[in-house]
Simulated scan of single mutants.
Amino acid sequence: MQTKNSRQKGAALITVMLVIALVSVIAVNLGSKLQMQITRMGNLQQAEQSYWMWLSAEDVLKEVLKRELNENDGVANNQQSWASRTGPFPVEGGQIAARVRDLSSCFNLNSMVTDEEDPGTLERRKRQYKALLQGVELDEYQAQGLTDSLVDWIDGDTQLSGSNGAEDPDYQGLPKPYLAANSLLLDVSELRMIRGYNREVVRKLRPYVCVIPNETALMINVNTLKEEQAALLTAVTEGKMSLQDAQSFLSNRPEAGYESNEEVDEVEAIANVKSELNGELSELDVESEYFQLTAYIQWGDVEMKARSVLHVNNGEVATLYRAMGE
């Protein structure tokens, strides 16, 4: 028969074992949390280093653009060093690659607004954009709807711009309702919010369109267009220049591009189109002001894609916009 002392010793032993088990659990949890904290700190340090590499790439591009455009009186072409993709370059702990896009070699979606000084500009932009949409194999009805819904998304009012437009009521009726932005775009990815711009439509448009923050002008640099972007010339000329003629014009450019707008105007294909448009073809240019840097950075376990929009003005280069991700 157990004595009172033996029962007390047994209870004490159980208590000690419970305390040891509890301490072990706490120690394991603390160890796991410490490991997570160490990992998190390491990731933060890698992310911070990637961020500074991005800004360094920006600074390098600014110096290149400043030098090359100043040397060429603002004229940009695809033979200049900024136009070639660079990298990936190995750096201690990772690597970096960069690509630069002239934002005058694409259709600025923010140009789809009314110009108070020239009210007819918006109608011309609509015709040009609709021609671009049809150039990427969208039918006329779909092109009209996409044009109207984009204008309604950007303009500052709540009135439909056309029978196929879309304003607040069209978005409020969705399963996850929201309102039209009624402001300029910041990024091409915003197209997915606009009625009609599904994944396939945006995929077709991406090689031809861009967004210049807070800029509503449309300028197309004929020196930096790629031959596979010939549909842009067809669009800007409202279809007056056929795709075949546009491809021929781009493939027959001087190797270093044209040196002036006057030289471009002397090309027979351009002169003929300007005549058909009653001289209206002010969108073509040989100079560029806006460029987009896309940096691909891998540092440790962190992989990052980052974009910067740069503006060249009066010999200086400023950053207008930064974003990470697609």
Rank of each mutant, 00 (worst) to 15 (best):
F249M: 13
E228R: 07
L243F: 10
L225H: 07
P207Y: 06
A235I: 03
T237I: 02
I220V: 15
Q229F: 02
E228V: 01
L225D: 12
E255Q: 14
A217V: 04
R206W: 06
R253V: 08
G239K: 06
L243Q: 14
T234N: 15
E238A: 15
N252C: 02
K240Q: 15
E227Q: 12
A217S: 15
E228S: 13
K204V: 04
L250M: 10
T234V: 01
L250A: 09
D245E: 15
L250C: 10
G257E: 12
M219Q: 14
L232M: 04
N252V: 01
Y208A: 08
E255R: 12
G239M: 04
N223V: 02
K226I: 00
R203C: 01
Q247W: 00
E227I: 07
N214W: 00
K226G: 09
E228T: 09
I220A: 07
K226T: 05
M219S: 12
P254M: 06
K240E: 15
M241C: 04
N221S: 10
P213N: 02
L218N: 08
T216N: 13
A217M: 07
D245S: 15
E227V: 11
N214L: 01
V236H: 11
L233N: 11
Q229C: 02
S251I: 04
V202G: 03
K204I: 04
T237Q: 07
E255N: 10
E238D: 11
Y208R: 05
V211I: 00
R203A: 15
F249W: 11
C210L: 08
E238Q: 15
Q244C: 00
P254H: 08
K240Y: 04
V211H: 06
V202S: 05
L218Q: 08
L250I: 06
A217T: 14
I220N: 09
I220E: 10
M219N: 13
P207A: 06
Q247H: 08
T216R: 13
T237V: 03
A231K: 12
V202P: 05
N252G: 08
A256C: 01
C210Q: 09
V209M: 10
T216Y: 00
T237F: 06
K240T: 08
S248T: 12
Q247Y: 00
E255V: 12
L205E: 14
A256Q: 15
N223E: 10
V202E: 15
V209H: 08
V211A: 05
T234I: 01
S248Y: 01
K204C: 03
M219D: 07
L205F: 11
L225I: 04
G257D: 10
P213S: 03
A217P: 00
E238P: 02
V209A: 05
S248F: 11
S242M: 05
A217F: 01
E227P: 00
M241S: 06
N223C: 03
V211N: 06
E238S: 14
K204S: 14
R253G: 04
V236Q: 08
K204T: 04
M241P: 01
V202L: 09
K240F: 02
T237E: 09
E227C: 00
L232I: 14
A231R: 11
V209I: 15
V222K: 06
T237A: 07
N221E: 14
S251W: 00
K226V: 00
K226R: 13
V202R: 05
N223T: 03
P254R: 01
M219E: 13
V202F: 04
V209S: 10
I220K: 02
T216G: 11
L232H: 04
Y208H: 11
D245I: 01
M241H: 03
V236K: 07
F249N: 09
Q247N: 12
A217K: 13
